[in-house]
Amino acid sequence: MTTEHTLVAPRSHPERSFGFGARLLGSQAFWASVATLIICVAITTISGTVATYENVFNTTRNFAFIGIMALGQTAVIITGGIDLAVGSVMGLSGIVFGLMMTSGYSLWSSILVALAVALACGAVNGYLVAYLQLSPFVVTLGMLSIARSLVLVVSNNRMVYQFGPDEELLFALGGGGLFGIPNPVLVLVGLTLVLGALLNFTAWGRHLYAIGGNEQAARLTGVPVNRIKLSAYLLSSLMAGIAAILMIGWLGSVTNALGLTYELRVIAAAVIGGANLAGGEGTAYGALIEAALLEIIRNSLLLAGVDPYWQGTFIGLFIIFAVLLERVRGKRDTALFERIRGKRSG
């Protein structure tokens, strides 16, 4: 395969002739990885606790749920949309899953139904956004409210902590691991690889970027814009369903607060990972690494004895900082283009 010529340049890189090194230095995902490493090392040397196996295991598993959802969110954001409903969809598909398990259905049929519920939410979002061309912000905000309220309706404010005959299997799925790596992390890594391949090597991926870059042009050239947009919202909801099941297996219980306010962390991870809210940019790897970064910072703050009430403040600051960074980079790139143009025509 000729992977060196990826038609979709990851982002931010104005000229291929600058080569791989420059492209790497220009990529947000790269800098995020560096930041993550530095923070890890810093925290380890200060507290001496992060690096314990226990802690790494916990941290990585925590970010896996956010990371999985950030992958779907990235696909939506690439098309220039946004999915605010992921947290609520996670809650709804999770509570349906819990209730099915507790009333004795097998793990697999419960998973199937839970994912179907998630997909149904995604289908509604996608249909309204793609085919009726309603604003993604408003549609998914509505779905956020609807799905969360359905969680309460369906659960009747009950908590589920008994999961019937397949309970052991479920706990093994969410809480277990392979070669010392937690299952949710394995799922996250697998899905990241799959999405990365889809984005870079398939027409579907190419069309996502095209829609985000210039939806009108995509339509004129015969890209099936509506279908592709719908698929992005379906993917985002499906990821929320998968995250819900894994998280329940890990927690060992479902409450109606499952996934509450997760949309914030998911969108934060996607955006700091380089997905541009204006559309047309974003990578699977960026979403993964940013979910990790956010969780590590959260964890570090906890270890450092910072009151957990401050967490929201830090995540909020992070989002704003990422968008600010975007702006600065945008300006720099524009200046670069001007120089290139000047040189060529001059």
């Binding site: 395969m1 038609l7 090597f201 027409a203 190419r206 095209a210 985000g212 042009a217 050239t221």
Partner: peptide, 30 residues
Amino acid sequence: LALCDNLTAAANVFLGREVRRSFAGMFRCL
């Protein structure tokens, strides 16, 4: 001109009719 600024020239030329080939006998990749 109906161009996507964020894609390469070649990607724009083939937009909406990308050339694909089978990979490992099942996946259709660009």
